[in-house]
Design a protein around this nucleic acid. Structure first.
Lengths: 232, 232
DNA sequence: AAGTGTGAATTGATTCACAGCC
DNA sequence: GGCTGTGAATCAATTCACACTT
């Protein structure tokens, strides 16, 4: 766990979040989503086993995870869906509005600007920002693109504390520095470089090519394995 | 670690890949990228400390990780950049060509089709597939969109073994089932549901909204903390 | 009878610290 | 003298298994 880097597995923490383990935190969004889906289907109660299946984890882990938040279940019965949704929402900060700024309106920035999954979870795109003058004023996903020079003003005016870096690798660190200087405390990094940030600022990296490479690694192993068996 | 699910930290493994720990595998792409960048800048040798900084990890972890692959460094000197790039490439299966099929050509599918980072790392988009008839024949990122009915044929003809699911949540499981039935052994899942797959098939999930939620969790903690201090 | 909550055991990952080699 | 490679120590996450509650 580093303040700035990491992989499918070791990102963040800067403030050791009360007692909730990092691995548990990373699964809470999963549980939240599964619960919302169950609620939509009219379920009022779930057992740890049912919820675990819906979230794609095993039930022991789920119960352990939930136990870090409190004792929200009823023995012999299960969990009240609505109550648990509420508790997890509160824990995740979903009950508040999070204005987000997206820097870099290339392919990915475009997709993010149009992505519906953000709005439905309390994330509001406060502004899109791009360095390219020809994009300034363009409308993307219903939002107008602002010049990079406006970054600081936007962060201050909208009270942005989460920034998304979707720029080319070469621009990422500078953009990140400016975001942090302007007061942003959390950065989601799609660029292919690790971002250096001061202690207290959190960064998560999402690296699409890395994800494919990890799959390729396992795939290759499987094929070697299959070849070996065929040879025997 | 489940065959199908995951957390900020626990995805995959199906074939316990020789001796290399999962956490190490997930960092290899990071090292690979940092090395390529160093090579571009003309470096011929790196110490574990330099490479660690470039990759955003600490040097002890880096050395331990590399030691799982073999003893590729020279004591007192460091690592030969080219040689190490080669060894990691080989380990990751980067020396071979990986045809990939992308199912779902919405916002995200578009961005993925245009994403340059794939091609440069041995991943070739063999085809784009979408269920919407009005997209069939359209050209996206220089590739023509095929109807969903062609999925099995495409996988077979192009020898696809990695599939990318970028469909709405409701369609994801069915698409995944068809991919797996057609012979795909690794799936990258951008949909907001866990995919159930048979043992031996690997799935990695990338969930953009979850990443923001994890950041929001930490951000909220920081703000509560800051409020508490201000009150004292 | 059913199912949560949790200590204890286990497994896995990270960090330390230094012997060994260049 | 500098830096890798790695056992040993530590720390974190997962799983087990069962006491306890409804």
């Amino acid at each position: 766990m580093t303040r700035a880097g990491r992989n499918g597995r070791d990102q963040l923490p800067a403030v050791r979040s009360r007692g909730v383990p990092e691995a548990t935190i990373a699964r809470l969004p999963l549980y939240h989503r599964a619960l919302v889906a169950l609620d939509d289907r009219g379920a009022t109660t779930v057992s740890s086993e049912e919820l675990a299946v819906a979230a794609g984890v095993n039930s022991a882990k789920l119960r352990k995870d939930l136990s870090y938040l409190g004792s929200y279940g009823t023995r012999g019965v299960g969990y009240d869906v609505n109550y648990l949704v509420y508790q997890i929402s509160r824990e995740l900060g979903l009950t508040q509005d999070w204005p987000v700024v997206i820097v870099g309106v290339g392919n990915l920035g475009h997709a993010l600007a149009n992505y519906q999954g953000f709005a439905s979870r309390g994330f509001r795109i406060a502004a899109l920002v791009d360095a390219a003058p020809e994009l300034t004023g363009e409308s993307v996903g219903g939002l107008c693109v602002h010049p990079l020079a406006d970054l600081e003003r936007i962060v201050a005016d909208a009270g942005v504390c989460i920034g998304v870096v979707a720029t080319p690798a070469g621009a990422a660190q500078e953009v990140c520095d400016r975001l942090v200087a302007a007061g942003v405390g959390s950065v989601l990094n799609f660029a292919a470089v690790p971002l250096r940030v001061p202690v207290g600022v959190d960064v998560r990296r999402v690296d699409l090519a890395s994800e494919l490479q990890i799959l390729a690694f396992h795939q290759q192993r499987k094929q070697i394995e299959a070849g070996r068996e065929a040879a025997v």
